[in-house]
Design a protein around this nucleic acid. Sequence first.
RNA 1: GCCGAGGUGGGGUAAUGGCCAUCCUGAAGGACUGUGGAUCCUUCGAUCCGGGUUCAAUUCCCGGCCUUGGCCCCA
Length: 414
Amino acid sequence: MIEKPRGTRDFLPEETSRRRAVEKKMRDTAERWGYAEIKTPTFEHLELFTLKSGEGIINEIYAFEDKGGRMLALRPEITAPVIRVYIHEMQNRQKPLRLYYFDNCFRYERPQKGRFREFWQFGVELIGGRRDLASFEMIALSVDILRAIGLDDFDLHLGDIFLLKRSITRGNSGLDEEKQRKIFRLIDKKDYNTLNTFLKDEKINGEDLFALLDLKDLSDLGDIEKIFDPDEKDEIEDIQRVLDLLSTYDIHPRLDFSIARGLDYYNGIVFEIYSHGLGAQKQICGGGEYELIELFGGKPESTRGFALGFDRIMEIVKESERDEKKILVVATEECRKDAITLSKELRKRFVVETDLMGRNLKAQLAYANSVGINFAVIVGRKEIEDNRFTLKNLASGEQVYLTLDELIETLGKD
RNA sequence: GCCGAGGUGGGGUAAUGGCCAUCCUGAAGGACUGUGGAUCCUUCGAUCCGGGUUCAAUUCCCGGCCUUGGCCCCA
């Protein structure tokens, strides 16, 4: 027996149906905000991803050489491909550009709860837009999507990488990139003890940084101004405006300047959403403002986006299987052809099955019952002679004797 | 990459160094050739893979694969 590869999953019809239902709600919500779907290739040049995230990530990428000697990679994420497309084909479009995607991604990692080697991301990229308005829209849309699929129990954290960076560069001129990166990593891990020791050893002034990390609530906003006064007035006002706009959607993020999001190209407002009950992998959404376009050689443009971890969301989202009315046309042996003719008619409007097993009437009904068919339409000699059909409601057991038109009308109700 | 737990029919399980590997469920058929869910009967179907120990391994040992909880990482 050949097994499926490590970290991949098969989705049986029931689960696939659940996933589709949730996917559809996400798409509908994004589209209602004016976002249009974009599709990019499943594999790309490896360089696209190393350029964005550094050589170090090759270990966690499904990378391979093709027969022409090209280094390729199964996409580990979709932001970089979207930005690539933007630079090649959409730079001259009118802004803002509202794009969304839903596709599978691949990472060569140790699978665990909520983490697979093939996984799905629903994401959005917003290119252009004034910083405060655009950041508001990103956060509001991500929350709107989660609410649309019935999720309410999550924590939204809002941070600002620009202020975070400034808090350590302001009082420490000439701080090299490597140290800065190490500081960021410790912040992201919330390992403040090690951070404190490191700063002392390196004689780095961490006063502003720790003051910033201490801030938790909206009411602390005034304190930010004290820390940076008056240098970063614009950025602080942006945060204030974003929070104010978010209140129209009844969204009240927690300030959390420990969001470092690891990477250099983030700058400005960032956010993460965490859910409960997912063990170590509790983050279901991450996003913010980033500067990738220049890195890829395009004209600078304000950009931001977010990605939702679809598989993690499916672990916590409540059942939402849609229930379409299903019909089995049940026939006696001599009337099978008539049953098929009737099915052809009914399929114009309904989900209709016919017996393929050569079962007798009783067994056909037993089958219908066990697979959750809602209605049986019985076709036998009597029906053909009368030019009528027997409609049986399998839930109630009620039976009625109807003409074709009446049958369609009855089935079409509710 | 590291630490821990685990792997028996399609799903859920029991047991065992040797005898037809247990039970539930499921599926197919029948009792019942124009009416489902109940009951009874028949049938189908499993010890993850490889090596070792042994007269004999599903059982004990080693390795691999996969799953799972966590660490690292997390674009």
